[in-house]
Simulated scan of single mutants.
Amino acid sequence: MSDENPILLDVDTDGIARLRLNRPAASNGMDVPFLQALHAAVLHCHGNPAVHVVLITGEGKNFCAGGDVRVFASKGEQLPDYLREATAWLQITVAALQQLTVPVIAAVHGFAAGGGGFGLVCASDFVIATESARFMSGAVRVGMAPDAGVTVTLTQLVGLRKATEILLTNPTLTAAEALAIGLLTKVVPDDALETEAVAYARQFVDAAPQAIGATKRLLWGGVGATVADRLPEEARTVSELSGTADSREGLAAVIERRAPKFTGK
């Protein structure tokens, strides 16, 4: 794939598929073309028998800052329609990641926020993060609701009480805090992320693929039906909220770097 593509995918000779989020100038913020390319890359991994493990990384300073708020704000009254499409692509991508028969590892640096970044963290099988990485849901902060199945997967990972706190109060979690509550697999020094992530991935190169695939299916199967049930309701809610004045104010506040002033409209 060209370096100009929003998603870069390479499969090395050991069977590690390196999937790189490639919109660094936008902190790898997700728009519709980005999500379409991400879905296509995941489907390629589904159809490539040479792939034994998928390693997701982000180019630039951040793993993924979530949805591209500037693109969203530019849509004006058309935002609900745009987000219906964006959310649909995000949902089928998350489902495709969970349905992969090979392990998915997210290697996180900088921020993992919103339905995009935070959602990918929750949808991955393993998460390795740098000590300086930060995690935040952020949806309610801009007058929207979580998506990417986070209302289900986060609860499974950290428990209902903690998930409620994270999604409703939007704390910025440090890597140490995220590890302590079970959101992460491992925290490594900032300068060791690439080395540690690849080393972690290599343990699956010679593993029994059918056993790995079956075990992953059983694990996500206990959650997947519930996630699938919630995805349409999440999409409806996100689209509905994006048409409110509070949502427009939330996006404007992020872009203008100020506190939002919500009116309940």
Rank of each mutant, 00 (worst) to 15 (best):
residue 2 S to T: 15
residue 3 D to W: 08
residue 3 D to Y: 09
residue 5 N to L: 13
residue 7 I to Q: 12
residue 8 L to F: 11
residue 9 L to P: 08
residue 11 V to T: 07
residue 13 T to N: 03
residue 15 G to L: 00
residue 16 I to H: 00
residue 16 I to E: 02
residue 19 L to G: 03
residue 20 R to P: 07
residue 21 L to R: 04
residue 22 N to A: 09
residue 25 A to G: 10
residue 29 G to Q: 08
residue 32 V to K: 03
residue 32 V to Y: 04
residue 33 P to Y: 12
residue 34 F to M: 12
residue 35 L to T: 07
residue 37 A to W: 08
residue 38 L to N: 06
residue 40 A to K: 04
residue 43 L to A: 09
residue 43 L to H: 05
residue 44 H to F: 12
residue 44 H to T: 01
residue 46 H to V: 06
residue 47 G to V: 09
residue 50 A to T: 07
residue 51 V to D: 11
residue 63 F to K: 00
residue 64 C to Y: 04
residue 67 G to S: 15
residue 67 G to Q: 13
residue 71 V to N: 13
residue 73 A to S: 15
residue 75 K to G: 15
residue 76 G to H: 08
residue 78 Q to R: 15
residue 80 P to L: 11
residue 82 Y to L: 14
residue 83 L to Q: 15
residue 85 E to M: 13
residue 86 A to K: 09
residue 94 V to A: 05
residue 96 A to D: 15
residue 96 A to G: 04
residue 98 Q to A: 04
residue 100 L to Q: 05
residue 102 V to Y: 07
residue 105 I to P: 01
residue 109 H to D: 07
residue 110 G to N: 11
residue 113 A to R: 06
residue 114 G to K: 10
residue 121 V to N: 00
residue 123 A to E: 11
residue 126 F to D: 02
residue 136 M to V: 10
residue 137 S to T: 03
residue 139 A to T: 01
residue 140 V to F: 07
residue 141 R to A: 15
residue 142 V to E: 13
residue 145 A to R: 14
residue 146 P to G: 05
residue 150 V to E: 01
residue 153 T to M: 05
residue 154 L to N: 09
residue 155 T to A: 15
residue 157 L to V: 05
residue 157 L to Q: 14
residue 159 G to S: 14
residue 159 G to I: 05
residue 160 L to S: 14
residue 165 E to I: 02
residue 166 I to D: 13
residue 167 L to T: 11
residue 167 L to E: 13
residue 171 P to M: 00
residue 173 L to W: 10
residue 176 A to K: 15
residue 177 E to A: 14
residue 179 L to V: 06
residue 187 V to M: 04
residue 188 V to P: 06
residue 190 D to L: 11
residue 195 T to H: 06
residue 197 A to T: 02
residue 200 Y to W: 03
residue 202 R to I: 03
residue 202 R to M: 03
residue 204 F to T: 04
residue 205 V to G: 04
residue 205 V to Q: 06
residue 208 A to C: 04
residue 209 P to N: 10
residue 209 P to L: 11
residue 212 I to T: 06
residue 215 T to R: 10
residue 216 K to E: 10
residue 216 K to N: 09
residue 220 W to L: 09
residue 223 V to T: 07
residue 223 V to S: 01
residue 224 G to Q: 01
residue 225 A to L: 05
residue 226 T to A: 04
residue 228 A to K: 00
residue 229 D to G: 06
residue 229 D to S: 05
residue 231 L to S: 05
residue 231 L to Q: 08
residue 231 L to F: 03
residue 233 E to F: 12
residue 237 T to S: 02
residue 239 S to C: 11
residue 243 G to N: 13
residue 247 S to D: 10
residue 249 E to Y: 13
residue 254 V to C: 13
residue 255 I to K: 09
residue 256 E to Y: 08
residue 257 R to K: 15
residue 259 A to H: 07
residue 261 K to V: 15
residue 263 T to G: 11
residue 263 T to K: 14
residue 265 K to A: 13
